[in-house]
């Protein structure tokens, strides 16, 4: 007939999209409300929080500057060594797993899956929990810290490295394979030059994070500045705690400056 089909009113989202969004909103509200209702919070503790905070700062000031040369400096150096050695060890362990996780380098889905499972497990367990495990293995001390940092970082470095490998261009790799290069050469001459800048930036980024993380490992006995912090906390030497926190702050800033400087110069 002559009737022109009436154009449906324009809608931004399909009903399905709207339903999905609505479900997300609903679940969010439900999760927050349930959590608020069931979480055990003792409101009486909250009333004197400002008082407690003031008390804390009064005890912290003035900071015990004399504690720095006595104990803090050596522990800080140890922390940086733990972070650096941990990063190096994690890179050694993460490279093969990252290669295994990249579907284009390792065309076996079973191996990809195993590698991804290893990476997720490494990332899911927090560095403090890894530290607890390695303190049980190696006894208290920086060795446990190095391994905790390394095992926590494998997931991060391996995942990012695997993703970078998957984005590598086929051209150079096909040229090498066509020339009959063995797989070691394909990796070294085909993939490595392509992923090198990304690799170094991942390592620097992780080192920066590891400096922060290694500062708290000592709370469970895994060496570094955390041990000094833990001792001061247990003895309620809040002026020493303040000095330790200030030193940690300084080291974190130092690590960030180093990373930014290296990035600007090299990458």
């Amino acid at each position: 007939m002559t009737a022109v089909a009436k154009a449906p009113a324009w809608e931004r989202f399909t009903p399905r999209e709207r339903f999905a969004r609505f479900t997300v909103y609903l679940l969010t509200v439900a999760a927050v409300v349930t959590s608020l209702r069931t979480v055990e919070v003792i409101p009486e503790f909250l009333y004197d929080a400002p008082e407690q905070m003031m008390d804390l700062f009064r005890r912290m000031w003035p900071m015990d500057v004399g504690h720095y040369p006595q104990a803090i400096h050596a522990a800080l150096v140890e922390t940086i060594h733990i972070a650096t050695l941990g990063t190096i060890l994690s890179v050694l362990l993460a490279l093969p797993i990252g290669v295994m996780a990249a579907g284009n380098v390792t065309p076996y889905p079973a191996l990809n899956f195993i590698a991804k499972l290893l990476l997720v497990s490494s990332r899911s367990v927090n560095s403090l929990v890894w530290a607890l495990v390695f303190v049980a293995v190696f006894g208290p001390g920086p060795l446990a810290g190095v391994f905790a940092i390394a095992f926590r970082s494998i997931g991060f470095v391996g995942k990012l490295f695997g993703e970078v490998l998957e984005e590598a261009h086929r051209g150079a790799i096909e040229a090498l394979t066509a020339a009959g290069a063995p797989w070691v050469s394909v990796l070294r001459m085909g993939y490595w030059p392509q992923v090198k800048p990304a690799f170094w930036s991942i390592v620097m980024f992780r080192w920066d994070i590891n400096v922060r993380e290694s500062a708290v490992l000592g709370l469970v006995g895994a060496g570094g500045i955390g041990v000094v912090l833990d001792t001061a906390l247990n003895l309620f030497h809040w002026d020493r705690v303040a000095m330790t926190l200030a030193s940690i702050f300084g080291v974190v800033i130092f690590a960030e400056i180093v990373v930014t400087a290296i990035r600007r110069r090299v990458l």
Partner: peptide, 8 residues
């Protein structure tokens, strides 16, 4: 230290 042990 400020609000005591617990989830808060």
């Amino acid at each position: 230290k400020a609000v005591g042990f617990g989830a808060l």
